[in-house]
């Protein structure tokens, strides 16, 4: 099978894969953040729209920094920022954003002596859910959504890591936020729980925006209508998952051994090698996955369109 001509790699154009919908109200333009001389974000521009948007990138690419800015935890050095139609640099508007925002940090922490219910209830209070009966109803709802109704009376310190992760996810879901920002939320979840998570987020995102930072490309494939790849503080690619996969079309092939010319290669269950890069003539091409495309993107210099 002759490989088709490889698609050019996307570069930081600042353009979303989908046209900006009139209702989309979260956007960043030219975001720049520097930590002690290190450029964490370098002119990032994005517009978030309804649905699940995956955020991929290697460690240190700036994903968490971007999420923290969108979660109003961090102020950028430069750039324009609108979150849910408001300016987070204005204190009153920032509070309004926080009322409508759900954020699950990478390492959220937990209060050891709280029960799962108490912890989520505590977060709900901090999100200004003041009416007690309604708040407790909401807490029960989100705990049920993450499958922890039975464990709600258990102390956080006695829960497994995966259960704690689900509790914190439940806390992020309090109040059905218009914008949900999740930083590696599936870490520690077993396969069954990951499926449940996908169901939950897919349903949640039907009329809301979810920004999902993860290293799990399967989650992105399953959930996201759009993928943003960050690299070294810049948007390397902003595509649909299918579009991103197309980048790798014609660049993935099977071989008896790891091809020395391949950018990446690994042994598969069928004892053949799956290689990514520029295939040799006559190579047996494989159907590309999002992971292939992501690896290819990460291994190729920015702008190295072939």
């Amino acid at each position: 099978m002759k490989p088709p001509p490889p698609a050019p790699l996307a570069t930081d154009t600042g353009a979303a894969a989908e046209p900006v919908s009139p209702g989309a109200s979260t956007s960043v333009q030219g975001l720049t953040v520097r930590f002690r001389g290190t450029l964490a974000l370098d002119g990032v521009s994005l517009t978030l729209s309804t649905g699940v948007i995956g955020l991929l990138g290697p460690n240190g690419a700036g994903k968490t920094t971007l999420l923290r800015i969108l979660a109003t935890a961090l102020v950028p050095d430069r750039g324009e920022l609108r979150i849910l139609g408001r300016n987070p640099l204005v204190p009153t508007e920032r509070q309004e954003i926080r009322r409508r925002l759900g954020y699950l940090p990478q390492t959220p922490g937990f209060h050891r002596q709280f029960t799962a219910f108490e912890f989520v209830d505590y977060i709900a209070i901090l999100k200004e859910h003041t009416e007690r009966a309604a708040r407790h109803e909401e807490v029960r709802r989100v705990l049920a959504a993450v499958g922890l109704s039975e464990e709600r009376g258990k102390k956080m310190k006695s829960l497994s890591g995966g259960m704690r992760q689900r509790v914190t996810l439940a806390a992020a879901l309090i109040g059905e936020p218009e914008l949900l920002i999740l930083d590696e939320p599936t870490v520690g979840l077993d396969p069954e729980q990951r499926l449940r998570f996908r169901d939950l987020i897919a349903e949640f995102a039907s009329d809301r925006t979810v920004l999902l930072s993860t290293h799990q490309t399967e989650d992105v494939t399953a959930l996201c209508h759009r993928v943003v790849v960050l690299e070294a503080g810049r948007v390397r690619c902003d595509e649909t998952p299918e579009g991103l996969c197309e980048i790798a079309r014609g660049r993935v092939w099977f071989g008896e051994d790891r091809d020395p010319s391949a950018i990446a290669g690994w042994r598969t269950r069928a004892r053949t090698y799956r290689n990514i890069g520029t295939p040799p003539p006559g190579a047996e091409l494989a159907e590309p996955t999002l992971e292939d495309a992501y690896l290819l993107l990460n291994s190729t210099p920015d702008g190295a369109a072939e």
Binding site: T32, V33, R34, F35, R36, A40, T65, T72, A73, L74, V75, P76, D77, R78, P88, P91, T92, R94, Q95, I125, L126, E128, H129, T130, E131, R132, R135
Partner: peptide, 25 residues
């Protein structure tokens, strides 16, 4: 270019009597 900083606490009027503060209390 300045170094990125944490968001400073909001200097909104301290609504001590607000329902959320009471609920948290």
């Amino acid at each position: 270019m300045t170094v990125a900083e944490q968001v400073r606490p909001t200097a909104l009027p301290l609504t001590m009597a607000s329902a959320a503060v009471r609920a948290l209390a």
